[in-house]
Simulated scan of single mutants.
Amino acid sequence: MSDTFNNIDLIRSLQEKDDVSAFNVIFTRYHQIIYHNICKLVHNPAAAEDILQEVFTSMWQLRTSLDPLKPVANWLFVVSFNKSMSWLKKNIREAKKLEEAFGHAMNEQVQLPVTTEPDYEGKLQMLERLIKQLPVRKRTAFVLHKLEGKSYNEVGELLGISPDTVKEYVKDSNKLLKQHVAKTGGLNIVNGIAPLILFLTH
């Protein structure tokens, strides 16, 4: 059974049966990569644990709105990013610290959006639209590594290519996504997607 089919089956079970075991499978599969991404943003392990819990609580509460045909990893990434940004906006007031949280990926003029539940869908659709523009093989490697949390070796085994080739695919995908952000208005792109893309490709 493929990962894609598993995800479809899990989400449908979550929606139709309120299946806690399906929820636990999704949590086990993705909590480490989501926690890792949150930590990179907030630099606070205790806060990251709290945000992680909020993310999966939101997934349970909003389970009926999830699209079984779309990767749940994308949804988790967007929601965790939004919640992390809310924490930063609340707890980090100095622009310098905010820049450091992004590894200086953004300049001081970036306007970070206020996080609201309806904003998830807009960011998710934009993220998926951008990723779909990548060449198929590079897109697959990028998603497996960046969103699914698989290592270069694991992705290489799945795709039948070397880890070095996977690394190059991911590097090329990072470059292509950043170029697209630049072409569509730099850091002031609609729905606050630019900060999310810059973080994803950092």
Rank of each mutant, 00 (worst) to 15 (best):
residue 167 K to N: 03
residue 68 P to E: 11
residue 105 A to V: 07
residue 21 S to M: 13
residue 53 Q to E: 02
residue 177 L to K: 09
residue 152 Y to W: 13
residue 85 M to W: 05
residue 62 L to Y: 07
residue 168 E to D: 12
residue 15 Q to G: 14
residue 33 I to T: 08
residue 61 Q to E: 13
residue 198 L to R: 06
residue 193 I to E: 08
residue 84 S to V: 08
residue 44 N to K: 00
residue 37 N to P: 01
residue 123 K to C: 11
residue 178 K to I: 02
residue 71 P to E: 11
residue 106 M to D: 02
residue 49 E to W: 01
residue 20 V to W: 06
residue 4 T to P: 01
residue 139 R to Y: 15
residue 161 I to Q: 05
residue 147 L to F: 09
residue 13 S to T: 08
residue 16 E to P: 02
residue 105 A to H: 09
residue 155 V to C: 06
residue 165 T to Y: 05
residue 170 V to A: 12
residue 174 N to G: 15
residue 116 T to A: 14
residue 103 G to S: 14
residue 112 L to K: 05
residue 197 I to K: 11
residue 168 E to R: 11
residue 193 I to W: 06
residue 133 Q to C: 06
residue 86 S to N: 15
residue 40 K to M: 04
residue 61 Q to P: 00
residue 89 K to R: 09
residue 47 A to D: 04
residue 195 P to H: 15
residue 183 K to F: 03
residue 96 K to W: 00
residue 146 K to F: 01
residue 106 M to P: 00
residue 104 H to Y: 14
residue 130 L to T: 03
residue 88 L to H: 08
residue 74 N to H: 07
residue 183 K to N: 07
residue 46 A to M: 04
residue 173 S to N: 11
residue 99 E to I: 07
residue 176 L to D: 15
residue 192 G to Y: 03
residue 145 H to Q: 13
residue 100 E to G: 01
residue 21 S to F: 12
residue 112 L to S: 05
residue 37 N to D: 15
residue 107 N to T: 15
residue 58 S to V: 03
residue 8 I to C: 09
residue 89 K to Q: 10
residue 176 L to V: 08
residue 8 I to D: 11
residue 13 S to C: 12
residue 9 D to G: 03
residue 120 Y to L: 15
residue 175 K to M: 07
residue 117 E to R: 06
residue 123 K to P: 02
residue 89 K to W: 01
residue 118 P to T: 05
residue 82 N to S: 13
residue 115 T to F: 00
residue 166 V to P: 02
residue 65 S to I: 04
residue 151 S to I: 14
residue 33 I to N: 03
residue 59 M to T: 01
residue 130 L to I: 07
residue 121 E to Q: 14
residue 162 S to W: 08
